[in-house]
Simulated assay, not measured.
Amino acid sequence: MSEDTPTGESDTATLFRFLNEVAIVAQLSGNAFEKVMPGTMTLPQFIVLNHLVRLGDGRTPLRIANALQVSKGAMTNTLGHLERAGWIAVRPDDVDRRSKRVDLTGAGREAHAAAIDALGPELAWLAGAVPPARVRAALPLMEEMRRALDVRRG
């Protein structure tokens, strides 16, 4: 049973409101981002490139799919597009030749950087609407929520 806050809203209701706002922000920001992406890059493709930039090369397609919580089929499709664009290279695993590994190419790093650059005007506009100091202050909470949810998914 959750406690009521001084405003009368339950903890459950507060958490739902918060997560609902996060979902709406994700939807709106994803749509805004996709409108300014360079060339034919899609948001799912950028997300995979961003994952590889952040965490490094050599991950299996299944590991990437699990991390991004998408099906293996969806990941195979996205990786196919990225490979045809020359942004990743898919190679056999050095140890288990049946498995594959995904590496970011130089062109993939450039495409990732171009996508970030293309987002610049959107981010500048948002910085005028929401003070970056407030965003910085919210980051520890967002990171804590992400870590809690990530542990829960197993």
Rank of each mutant, 00 (worst) to 15 (best):
I64V: 05
Q45K: 10
A113S: 11
L119K: 03
T105P: 10
M75W: 01
A107T: 13
V102P: 02
E110F: 00
A23R: 03
H51G: 00
R136A: 14
E122Q: 15
A133S: 13
V36T: 12
D4W: 07
T60D: 05
V151H: 07
I64T: 00
V53R: 01
E3F: 14
L28M: 15
T78I: 07
S99C: 01
P61C: 04
L62I: 02
E83D: 14
T105W: 10
L15T: 14
V130K: 06
A74S: 10
A113G: 10
L49N: 07
A113I: 06
V151W: 01
T12F: 10
G154Y: 00
E144W: 07
G106H: 09
L62H: 05
S10F: 09
A67N: 00
E9M: 15
V130Q: 08
D94C: 02
L28E: 15
I88S: 05
V48R: 09
A148S: 06
E83T: 13
A115P: 10
P121C: 07
H81M: 02
T76G: 03
A32E: 12
T14E: 09
R101C: 03
R97Q: 10
E110S: 12
P44Y: 08
E83P: 03
L126G: 08
Q27T: 13
G73Y: 07
A138V: 09
A127W: 03
G30D: 04
K100P: 04
E144S: 14
K100A: 00
G86Y: 04
R153F: 01
L104E: 04
A107Y: 11
G120D: 13
A133K: 11
G58L: 04
I47G: 02
F16T: 11
T5C: 12
G128Q: 15
A67G: 01
M142C: 05
G73D: 11
A124S: 15
T12S: 13
K72H: 11
L15I: 14
T14P: 00
K35F: 06
R153Q: 04
S99R: 15
D11L: 14
A124G: 14
E3C: 06
T76A: 11
A133V: 13
G39A: 15
V90S: 12
L43K: 07
R101H: 08
P121G: 07
R152Q: 12
N66Q: 09
V22W: 00
T12W: 05
S99W: 06
G80K: 12
L139A: 04
K35D: 14
D117S: 15
P38I: 09
E9P: 01
F33K: 05
A133R: 15
N31W: 02
P44V: 08
G80V: 05
A13H: 02
A148C: 01
V130L: 14
Q69P: 01
L149T: 00
G120N: 09
G154F: 01
P140S: 06
L19N: 12
A133E: 15
T76L: 07
P132K: 08
G8R: 09
R146A: 10
T40N: 15
I88M: 01
G58F: 05
R91L: 15
A127H: 11
A74F: 02
A85P: 07
M75Y: 05
D117A: 15
A114H: 09
E9Q: 14
E122D: 06
F46H: 10
L49F: 11
I64A: 03
